[in-house]
Amino acid sequence: MKPAAFEYLRPKTLADALAALDHEDAKIIAGGQSLLPMMNFRLVQPERLVDINQIEQLNQIEKTDTGIRIGALVRHAEAARSSLLAEHFPIIAKAMVHVAHVAIRNRGTVAGSMCHADPSAEWPLLVTLLDGEIEILGNSGTRSAKPFEFFLAPLVTEIEETEILTAIHLPLIANPCRMAFDEIAQRAGDFAAVAVGTLVCVEGNIFSEIRLCLGGVFDTPVRAFAFENALIGQPASVESIEAALPLVLKDLEPNDDIHASAAYRLSLVSALARRVLFDTIDEMM
């Protein structure tokens, strides 16, 4: 239960961090809340550990021309407390309550969650739901990726070992929209059996935009496109939602594992989808 030996580097700039990653078997440590458990179990034994915690420019949450940029090292607890995020994306604070426990939220980071890519994790679901962009720095410069390109499989993303996730960009959302999030886990702070987030926009009493995103159901977060497409353009009412809801479950074959059976996940999806959608309607009407 102790990590194997490794070389430890603590760069202060992104340039130094990139240089430190130029090694056969280097790994970034951010919050260490997923990596260190795996190193303690010796499931992961990097030869070199690159600690990015001292790179101050990765700590910021800031407004840009198009949205909000959340720096890689922003901790779950900081995101939950951010007034800028509360103003534009109140759903984030609601979701953060469900991420692990107080002490882990104080340390774990946005980028670490994205790169760890647990299928039940809250950040991957939020960034998928909010149609965010992932900013990645490598030796040839900065590139960006969309969540559906970034997440490949449970605990697998397309980021290279020599690259650094530097920030998440969330595009601003028009005013008449509401967001809601909820999840069911066996115990408070556990990874969710199922998590659901939604974004609902109404214009002139019509659903003008609907997004529904499911976590914990598949290998990566997924949008319920059939349901979304059926509801867009319908009168904004509880009845329209009820009529379209069965489409959320259409063709859905959830994971079946020790945390929850597929059948249980199906019933959770249905209950949580109804709950979050009605939450947004309650707020609007």
Partner: peptide
Amino acid sequence: EHGACGTCTIILNGVSVRSCLL
């Protein structure tokens, strides 16, 4: 030693953290 039990919790620069994950 994998962040699950909480008995190793300490205060680091004003906030609580797991000392086994540090």
